[in-house]
Amino acid sequence: MKKQFNRMRQLANQTVGRAEKTEVLSDDLLHIERRLELVRLVSHNTHKRLVSCLQGQPGTDTEKRHKKLPLTTLSQAMQEGGSQLGDDGLIGRMMDVCGEAESRLATELMQHEVQIEKDILDPLNQLAEVEIPNILKQRKQLAKLVLDYDSGKTRWYQATKSNNQAMAAKADSLKDEMDEALNKVEICKDQLSADLYNFASKEGDYARYYVMLLEAQADYHRRSLAALEAAIPTIQIQQDSWMEKPAFGTLLEEHLKRSSREIALPLEACVMMLLETGMKEEV
């Protein structure tokens, strides 16, 4: 409690300029420190936006993820529709083949998102929510230790200059407290400096996440395109085969020839009905 009170008093005196503030970090380290929070913020925002781009639910196993994808449900609907229509018509065949293609696309998407989560999302989250906060936490601890040291130094200096014998007698003990506080500052500063330089040295690794994102997306689109290109010829063959079937006019001619008629029986019946009911002369 007393230590906290001394910190607050020392901070107040430094704020209004009545006490000196010890700066233990070099300019290089202060520059790295200023980047820490900015890197944390942009990494957090990127992670959040990238998660929103995923169609599957992060953190779930691959089977559940695959089932929940919109492409999977589309594939199932197409294949069920094709099964209901059967192979007698072209629509049923097309829906079945397209359904299989959509299923392959869903598998490619699921594998892509799992890779994105493992190689990019998890590291970004680790950086923004664990690594940088730990360094910032240590920086706050150093600031507290520096306040303890500055407070101890101020009290020791006042004791050495005081004419009060009681205060002068405490100078040695205050000097010991100041030295102990300085030792803690040095230990914390060394550890923080190592962490800051380590962070700076890994900037290339952190930047690599964004390269990996584009590479993963490019690979995913190539595999998806390959799946589509593999399905399109099959669909085209069935389409062309269906279009080569005899047209309605050819079938009608064949029917008239076999039945030795000049007009099809259904058409003849319709014409006769019109003559009898709708085309009589008015009396």
Rank of each mutant, 00 (worst) to 15 (best):
D87E: 14
L38H: 10
K257I: 06
L30D: 09
A264W: 09
R35S: 14
E131K: 04
K68D: 15
K189H: 13
V39K: 11
E281H: 15
A247N: 07
Q76N: 11
E276D: 13
K137I: 03
V271R: 08
L142S: 04
A247Q: 14
G204V: 06
A269W: 11
C188H: 04
L136G: 05
A230R: 09
S26N: 08
A128N: 02
I232S: 08
R208G: 00
Q239W: 11
F248H: 10
L136D: 06
L136P: 00
M78H: 00
R35M: 11
L196G: 03
E129L: 06
L267R: 12
F5Y: 11
D190H: 07
V211S: 06
Q14M: 04
S173W: 02
L192A: 05
D205W: 00
V211Y: 03
S151Q: 02
D176A: 15
G86P: 01
Q84A: 11
E276R: 14
R18F: 04
A227R: 10
V283G: 14
G278D: 15
R155P: 02
Q55D: 05
L251T: 10
L267H: 14
P246V: 04
P133D: 00
L174H: 05
R93G: 03
Q239H: 14
V24F: 08
F199Y: 07
Y206D: 01
R155V: 10
K3N: 13
Q79G: 03
S75P: 01
Y206T: 01
T107L: 11
I237H: 15
R261H: 10
R18Q: 13
K3G: 10
L192Q: 02
E203C: 10
Y197C: 05
S173P: 01
Q111C: 07
D176F: 08
L74H: 10
Q57N: 12
D176R: 14
R34W: 06
Q126R: 09
L192V: 00
Q141R: 04
L147A: 12
G81T: 00
K137Y: 05
Q141E: 15
L174T: 06
E276N: 14
A128E: 00
K153D: 05
A77N: 12
T154C: 06
L25M: 05
L54D: 00
G59M: 03
L182S: 09
V146Q: 05
H47L: 11
E186D: 01
V16W: 02
L11N: 09
H112M: 09
Q165C: 02
G56P: 08
K118I: 07
A106K: 00
L90C: 06
K68A: 15
K118C: 04
L147H: 02
C98R: 02
D172S: 14
N164G: 03
L265F: 05
H31G: 12
M272L: 13
H47A: 15
R93Q: 14
A169Q: 12
L29S: 14
L192E: 04
Q165F: 03
